[in-house]
Write a protein that binds this DNA or RNA. Structure first.
Lengths: 245, 245
DNA sequence: AAAAATAAACGTAATAATGACGTTTAATAA
DNA sequence: TTATTAAACGTCATTATTACGTTTATTTTT
């Protein structure tokens, strides 16, 4: 008879931050440590996503939020559980064998992967050996485990969601210019958009609200600032089923 | 120190079938058995999704496909892993406590939930006590565990995907009429669509291909049959980023 | 203080898509 | 042969999109 699987449960967080200056979508990564023979922490020359085991009395969502809070100090970010990873080749450690009622079980590590959206500027990054660091999503360093794959799938999901929902505003400051929105779309989706058409389209949306403010500290004509109203968006969306196949 | 979580891993399958006659989206469910004191199987008066433990050497996807194959005999259906469910209150059984290196662990059951799409007609259902049965998604019976919630979330995900991708054709026969597509959308999304506009829109799509065939055995004017070409759709989609916020 | 430079903002015309309807056609049933 | 009915076609006003050109407001340079 085949063995049923007992697994070690963790969450991994893909933290996406958009940098309005460099116009790049970044991922927050930490250096990986491994436990050595003599129990000292040894630095490995690659990076990993932040993740941790789920505690006994914790929901998956809470575990992801806890991990994120420890990493960034932030709460209440846009969060999406996008996929579970748990293929047999994820088995990490030969010590991960357990016995239950004299039966042997392999202990596979299942991770429930989340992604979070924020503004790069909201996370203070000090480039110490042990601390988190931003990397452009299209120029990642060496990554441990299957984390490159996890990031890839998170990014795919994000792109699709960007096209269908106004989550771009989770990545932008509360007050933004039209061109900043365009740049964000272009960077994330890897496409070119006509500025004049994009501008008209966005300005005509009821939920894109012009403010009585302009950019300050720019060395050319300062642009009009806008905000996104989720309330207005939700009201409009309710009656707007659009089959776009 | 808080206990890390060790979990029992399973997959649950939400099998959606669309019935072209009753115009209803159905879910395939089985009666639930519980193990009684004297080890005989005892029937419980509710239904559950099909699901099973993941085996030691199995990927999550393979496990879901295996469960589906055992239930329906079918392969190669549209499949989506849509969410992991594993909150602490899912803990089912007091016997689910294990010891590893003299540490006690609670054994929570994590389930990776998938949904599959097929035509109701493709699954022969015999209404025996132990066999699978179709239920309309908006008229479900009593359900065990958190399976009502799982179905609800699968349905929400399906609705959103229906609006963005041509997965409706996974639920329809290979040869279909325009009105059958409209009925499917109306039933699944719970909306009314103008037939004349819908017809025009669909017929104009390059990937909706008219066949040299009409309906047979209908008692009114027989309708033109069409097919969906995934190849053509994929080619068109590649250059068609549409930001529809 | 005027001129050059430049990003922001506005404009237009052709085409395509959508929404809200009315009408005709091809088949079966009476 | 006629009535019935679902399928299929047509129209018109409105809105959205595409593909461009032009003007404006501000800073920097001369």
């Amino acid at each position: 008879m085949k063995s049923e699987l007992i697994s070690n449960l963790s969450v991994d967080c893909v933290v996406f931050g958009y940098d309005i200056i460099t116009k790049s979508l970044n991922v927050l990564l930490i250096k990986r440590y491994l436990e050595s023979e003599d129990k000292k922490d040894v630095l490995v020359n690659d990076y990993v996503l932040t993740g941790y085991h789920v505690f006994e009395d914790e929901t998956l969502d809470k575990a992801a939020e806890r991990v994120l809070k420890e990493l960034t100090g932030l709460n209440n970010l846009y969060k999406k559980q996008f996929k579970a990873f748990g293929d047999p080749d994820r088995l990490t450690n030969p010590k991960d064998l357990i016995w239950i009622e004299s039966q042997k079980f392999n202990l596979r590590t299942i991770t429930i992967a989340y992604y979070f959206l924020l503004k790069t500027e909201d996370v203070e990054v000090t480039d110490n050996a042990s601390k988190a660091k931003w990397f452009p999503v299209d120029d990642l360093p060496e990554l441990g485990f299957d984390h490159k794959q996890i990031i890839k799938e998170a990014y795919e999901d994000l792109k699709i969601k960007c096209l269908a929902e106004p989550i771009i505003f989770e990545l932008l400051p509360d007050k933004f210019t039209i061109n900043e929105v365009q740049d964000a779309y272009q960077s994330i989706l890897g496409i070119e958009i006509d500025n004049r058409n994009f501008r008209r389209k966005l300005i005509n949306k009821k939920y894109i609200i012009p403010l009585d403010e302009k950019q300050v500290g720019v060395s050319k004509k300062p642009a009009q600032l806008y905000m996104f109203s989720k309330d207005v968006y939700d009201k409009i969306f309710q009656k707007n089923y659009l089959i776009s196949i």
